[in-house]
């Protein structure tokens, strides 16, 4: 029992160490200017542009459902006009960044892990190294930079669509006064709430790219290994986002008190 607990602890420490090392390698390469702009724009398209539909649908329907549920409860108390701020603050602080993080982890994290993992097991990464190209510079840096740029924008998009659909549901379907809906939202939700969402999105982006690329770079044993790396990437990203979200919520509440 003690031995197996110790082994798990050591494995976790080793894993975290490898992630930290990958983070340092990546940031070091970015700071030294080892940036391949063509690959960066390719990844912005892959991660940012092509994730938009998923993020819009997720944000939009989450906002719509949340507005409806909030209205059903608040209507009983005669607090219809509180729906706007409640939805806006929830979308900004929690639902927008977390759901976007989970969606991007599923779509982009899996793709990163599978692509890099396949390159690993088919010796393409060894070929890169043999051609004097560092795999982190070529594979991780463009993805990391693209996700640093894309994630806050995707989170913003998700929040925006969530608020927009909540307005449609609240005002057009449920009959809340539009003026109260908007003015209360502006009164209670401010720039700090949006900042929290964007910061969380940025942090989740770092986690997704590090975990997914790490899984790909350490893929082993052919197709089975790539499959395992891909699944693990999504699972680890998702769980890490949920855990780190709690830590961020507590930490950011100190910087941006409610």
């Amino acid at each position: 029992m003690i031995r197996s607990t110790g082994r798990i602890f050591l494995t976790l420490c080793l894993y975290l160490g490898e992630l930290a090392f990958l983070f340092l390698e990546t940031t070091g390469a970015i700071l030294r200017g080892r940036i391949r702009w063509r690959l960066f724009w390719q990844q912005v398209n892959e991660i940012g542009s092509r994730s938009q539909m998923v993020v819009m649908v997720t944000g939009g329907f989450t906002g719509a459902v949340f507005a409806a549920q909030t209205f059903f409860q608040f209507h009983l108390l005669g607090m219809d006009s509180a729906v706007g701020p409640v939805v806006a603050i929830s979308m900004c602080r929690e639902l927008g960044p977390v759901l976007t993080g989970l969606m991007v982890a599923g779509r982009v994290g899996a793709a990163m892990s599978a692509e890099i993992g396949t390159m690993k097991v088919t010796e393409q990464i060894d070929a890169l190294r043999a051609l004097a190209v560092h795999p982190v510079d070529y594979l991780v840096v463009p993805r990391a930079m693209a996700i640093f740029v894309s994630m806050p924008l995707l989170v913003g998009e998700s929040i925006g669509f969530g608020i927009f659909t909540s307005y449609i549901v609240g005002v057009k379907l449920m009959g809340i006064q539009g003026t109260y809906f908007i003015s209360n939202m502006i009164q209670f939700a401010d720039l700090a709430d949006v900042s929290i969402g964007l910061i969380k999105g940025f942090v989740f982006g770092i986690l997704i790219v590090l975990i997914s690329c790490h899984q790909g770079l350490h893929a082993r044993e052919g197709a089975v290994g790539v499959g395992r790396a891909t699944t693990d990437a999504v699972v680890i990203c998702s769980l890490t986002i949920l855990v780190v979200n709690f830590v961020l919520t507590m930490g950011l509440n100190i910087i941006f008190p409610a």
């Binding site: 396949t118 390159m119 088919t122 010796e123 393409q124 060894d126 070929a127 043999a130």
Partner: peptide, 11 residues
């Protein structure tokens, strides 16, 4: 330069 067993071309 190295020639890998399966070529290791970038697919």
């Amino acid at each position: 330069g190295i020639l890998f067993q399966n070529g290791a071309l970038f697919d």
